[in-house]
Design a protein around this nucleic acid. Structure first.
Lengths: 325, 325
DNA sequence: TTGTAAGCGTTATCAG
DNA sequence: CTGATAACGCTTACAA
């Protein structure tokens, strides 16, 4: 590996001049520029990013913290983020937090020591107090942190209302809800939307809500029980597509036909929702767009461009497939 | 942010001493060590990883290059790799190559400039010539590169033979194969296993192989055609679980009952294989173990521990579910 | 046992 | 337009 010094020597100039052509900053004579370029070429010189980082206090890296990349919602987000950051010359560091605040904080600490340029975080545990005075830009993805930190996500509340209303319009009389883990913002909001939509019509019954914790098996068990106690349930709004699959499994187990006897609608619109039998009706999020928007936003902040908006709330779209009649 | 110099001043010692306690290298008096520790505590000092990198020519980062994190096989691998590297104090950089050699090479180049400590790569395009003299350790994951570079994966050939044999044992008389993209090592090996198993019994007919390119839709179309031409096909070995799902969809479309009229077996054992209806019989890989083994291996190389083995070929395990009779 | 000082490879300031 | 040179924050000979 050759250094800037080698290039300078080869070209017969000073390192300062080489640096100038490298960053094309300041004046440099066209001839000498050529000589430098030739030397760079000849030595196959690549600038050392670490040395550059040390001086500039920035690393051209951004950190993405998600609960668990294994959850099918996140790879699409990660891909979107990686696409736009790579495009802009940044490198993506992947972090799995398992929804644990200490892991989140550890990642942040470690990466700050590497002069990370910014974070995109999906978190339910980090609050304003944890990130104020951080000194590194953050954008919250999927779940808002507080009003003062930039955020990109969807309108979970409205989406949940739409889903519930859709079931109502389909003629469902008794609609249950499998909610995601308590304390996860998106799960809470979706549950609230479901409740509010039914409460208006005095159709709400708290017994019809079960907790699926975003897991297939747990949802399946809970739904089997629920469907046994209330065999007249004719619609289920699941807090996400994973849990909707659990509902499908439960229905199969207790011998309920979908969609004839039971309509189920999910939330997220992950790729999985198209491969079930029957294919899942769901409230679809523009996942890739959300991820890429968050990434563009973060890059904007890092590069100190003026931010047009500090919050993007995308609408959610009903995709009607085969699990609702 | 305070520097080592601040700590030194605070503790009334030289920076060298602080560095010594930081890395506990060399001798340092117990009292002065305590003074230094107190100063570190008081100033909440964190060493700057970039400066350290510059000197040591290593970054405590490892790069994971996969074709596309959005493909459900890779998140589990990524998770495993992240778990073990994080545990060892390393940070994971995620790279999506889309199977394009130029992207792979670009990532390698960029990360080398950051003193990346090693790579774990899933590639079908990188050959020995591209990586020799790289100067950074590599381990090949899922797909071998050449005999001289460490590799972790499964025995695709044997797995494919097992899958085919299983179908045979179930009484299938006419077994088709949907293969993955040509040129992808795993797809080629699995196809070869299928062919060899049947050829022994002179049951092989090249017309029964179609290319699904690892995609659901493409597989579905191809299988619909194939099932129309050869309605007596009674078994399908799909090159991976994704394509097996395509087969399921095709069967539904042409009105073939699974498993009564058609048995299908997949490969990989990704989480998805449990959520289809019927649930998929598949040749399951120990995905997490493969990922973690590759990561441990790479760390071993980086830390110059003697390598017990330079190749790990895990066996693949038949998981019988509902898509085969 | 501790301190001094020379790097590590860049960038940017300031003269010239 | 170009060149010295002082940082950036840390580690490690080498001295003391």
């Amino acid at each position: 590996m050759s250094t800037i010094r080698d290039v300078a020597k080869e070209a017969g100039v000073s390192v300062a001049t080489v640096s100038r052509v490298l960053n094309n900053s300041g004046y440099v004579n066209e001839d000498t520029r050529k000589r430098v370029m030739d030397a760079i070429e000849k030595l196959n010189y690549k600038p050392n990013a670490v040395a550059r980082s040390l001086f500039k206090k920035q690393s051209k890296m951004i950190g993405l913290i998600v609960p668990d990349i294994t959850n099918p919602f996140f790879p699409q987000l990660a891909r979107a983020v990686e696409d736009v950051t790579k495009q802009a010359g940044y490198t993506l560091v992947l972090c799995n937090s398992d929804n644990q605040i200490d892991k989140e904080q550890e990642y942040i600490e470690v990466l700050k020591q590497k002069y990370i340029d910014g974070f995109i975080i999906v978190t339910s545990t980090l609050k304003q107090e944890h990130i104020e005075g951080l000194g590194v830009p953050i954008v919250a993805l999927d779940r808002a942190i507080d009003d003062s930190t930039p955020y990109v996500g969807v309108d979970n509340y409205e989406g949940a209302k739409m889903a519930t209303r859709f079931l109502l319009n389909k003629g469902c009389k008794k609609i249950a809800h499998v909610r995601g883990s308590i304390g996860i913002l998106t799960a809470d909001e979706r549950c609230r939307g479901y409740i509010d939509e039914l409460q208006n019509l005095s159709l709400f019954n708290p017994e019809l809500i079960v907790n699926g914790d975003f897991q297939i098996q747990k949802t399946k068990q809970a739904m089997i029980e629920l469907l046994t106690i209330y065999p007249d349930i004719d619609g289920v709004f699941a807090g996400n597509d994973i849990m909707a699959i659990g509902v499908l499994k439960a229905a199969e187990e207790v011998g309920k036909k979908i969609p004839e006897q039971l309509s189920v609608i999910g939330f997220d619109g992950i790729a999985l929702s198209e491969i079930t039998t029957p294919e899942l009706t769901t409230m679809s999020q523009p996942i890739y767009e959300i991820g890429s928007t968050a990434a563009k936003m973060l890059l904007g902040i890092i590069e100190e461009k003026p931010l047009p908006k500090s919050t993007y709330t995308f609408p959610v779209r009903l995709v009607e497939r085969k699990s609702t009649r």
